[in-house]
Amino acid sequence: MKIIGLTGSIATGKSAVTKIVAAAGYRVIDADLVAREVVEPGTFTLEKIKDVFGLDIVENGVLNRKKLGQMVFKDPAKLKELTAITSPAIYSAIEDKLNFFKNRGEKVIFIAIPLLFEQKYDESGWLDQILVVATNPRIELDRLMVRDHLDEYAAQSRIKAQISIEKKAEMADVVFDNNGSEEELKQQVEKYLADLKKEE
Rank of each mutant, 00 (worst) to 15 (best):
K2Y: 14
G5F: 07
S9C: 12
T12R: 01
T12I: 04
T12K: 00
G13L: 00
V17M: 05
A24C: 10
I29Y: 02
D30M: 08
V34T: 06
R36T: 02
E37N: 03
V38M: 06
P41D: 08
P41K: 06
G42Q: 11
T43H: 09
F44I: 15
G54Y: 14
V58K: 05
V58G: 05
G61V: 08
L63E: 00
R65L: 05
K66R: 12
K67S: 08
G69L: 06
G69I: 03
M71G: 04
V72Y: 13
F73N: 01
F73T: 04
D75M: 02
P76G: 07
P76W: 10
A77L: 14
K78D: 13
L79R: 15
K80N: 12
K80D: 14
S87G: 11
S87M: 13
I90E: 04
I90R: 06
S92W: 00
A93S: 12
A93D: 09
D96M: 08
L98H: 01
K102V: 11
R104M: 15
V108H: 08
A112D: 02
L115A: 12
Q119R: 12
K120T: 07
K120H: 14
Y121G: 01
D122Q: 10
D122L: 05
G125Y: 05
L127A: 05
V132Y: 03
V132M: 01
V133Y: 01
V133E: 03
T135E: 00
E140R: 03
E140Q: 09
D142I: 07
D142S: 13
D148M: 03
H149C: 12
H149R: 08
L150C: 11
E152M: 10
Y153G: 10
Y153R: 13
A154E: 15
A154D: 14
S157Y: 03
A161W: 09
I163V: 04
S164F: 00
E166F: 00
A169Q: 02
A172W: 00
D173T: 01
V175W: 03
F176E: 05
N179I: 04
G180E: 02
G180M: 00
S181T: 12
S181R: 06
E184R: 07
L185E: 06
K186L: 06
V189P: 05
Y192I: 09
Y192F: 15
D195S: 08
E199Y: 01
